[in-house]
């Protein structure tokens, strides 16, 4: 496997790999996004308790899952970048971070918009929402640290270190917030019972999760391509590629 992976440490091969993968991700995103949204908004049955407001679940849950997923993949890329000194992995960290921050912001906004009709307030200090907010801070920290450095080589490594520190802290933060929440909130309101979700709602949710994952993949690939080009713009292969097409 290492033999197979090794060529992609080179920038031009990594760039080509991004180019080959991109159409697949893009197609999956477009198809799943359309199917998922139409199915979720128009065809899935209304919840017997929350009526039509529950339809926010079809974007809230995928974005919340992907906000965590994007952070962990960012941290994995950061570990690879620091341990094996792979510059491409470093660029991947920088490529994922803004996408992850956007997805986290979506999870927060949809959470608030769902909270208003259900809890009667835009913002409730619910454990999940609070964790998402802190996650957004962590993303913004990585991004602003990266942009504060003028030397982009040092910036990438600093961002990697911060991403790893963050991912070690994330479970601690998550559990402490959850614990704090049960301590301070008399009656905990759970958004949806995990015990049984009807298939008629489960499948559109799955399609939406796939759509979000593919979207994060697509934009990450585009941004990774940008980062590789930005770094390698004085190399001959970039010129040759542009002249060809």
């Amino acid at each position: 496997m290492w033999k197979w992976l090794h060529p992609y440490a080179k920038a031009d091969r990594a760039y080509q790999l991004c180019n080959t993968l991109l159409p697949y991700f893009a197609v999956v995103t477009v198809v799943c996004m359309i199917v998922g949204w139409v199915w979720g908004l128009a065809y899935a049955p209304a919840d017997y308790q929350q009526k039509d407001s529950y339809r926010i679940i079809f974007i809230h849950v995928p974005s919340a899952i992907l906000s965590m997923g994007a952070y962990s993949s960012m941290a994995i890329a950061a570990v690879i970048a620091l341990v094996w000194q792979l510059r491409n992995a470093e660029l991947a960290v920088i490529a994922i971070a803004p996408v992850g921050a956007c997805v986290t912001a979506i999870a927060l906004i949809t959470g608030a918009a769902w909270g208003k009709p259900m809890w009667g307030a835009w913002w409730v200090w619910d454990a999940r929402l609070t964790s998402e907010l802190i996650l957004l801070f962590l993303y913004l920290g990585v991004l602003s640290l990266y942009h504060a450095f003028e030397d982009k080589k040092a910036a990438g490594r600093a961002a990697c270190i911060l991403a790893i520190v963050g991912v070690i802290n994330l479970p601690i933060i998550h559990f402490s917030v959850e614990w704090w929440n049960t301590l301070h909130q008399g009656a905990t309101i759970t958004k949806f019972d995990t015990k049984a979700i009807d298939p008629s709602m489960f499948w559109p949710l799955m399609v939406n999760i796939v759509a979000f994952a593919a979207f994060v993949g697509t934009v990450t690939l585009i941004r990774l391509k940008n980062e590789i080009l930005q770094r390698e713009k004085h190399r001959p292969w970039v010129r040759q590629m542009l002249e060809r097409g």
């Binding site: 504060a148 802290n169 933060i173 402490s176």
Partner: peptide, 18 residues
């Protein structure tokens, strides 16, 4: 560095605070 450092560090302080 000063303000940026607070931005990086304060979220990590949350478990200690709690």
């Amino acid at each position: 560095g000063g303000i940026l450092m607070s931005l990086l560090v304060l979220p990590l302080y949350i478990p200690v605070l709690i």
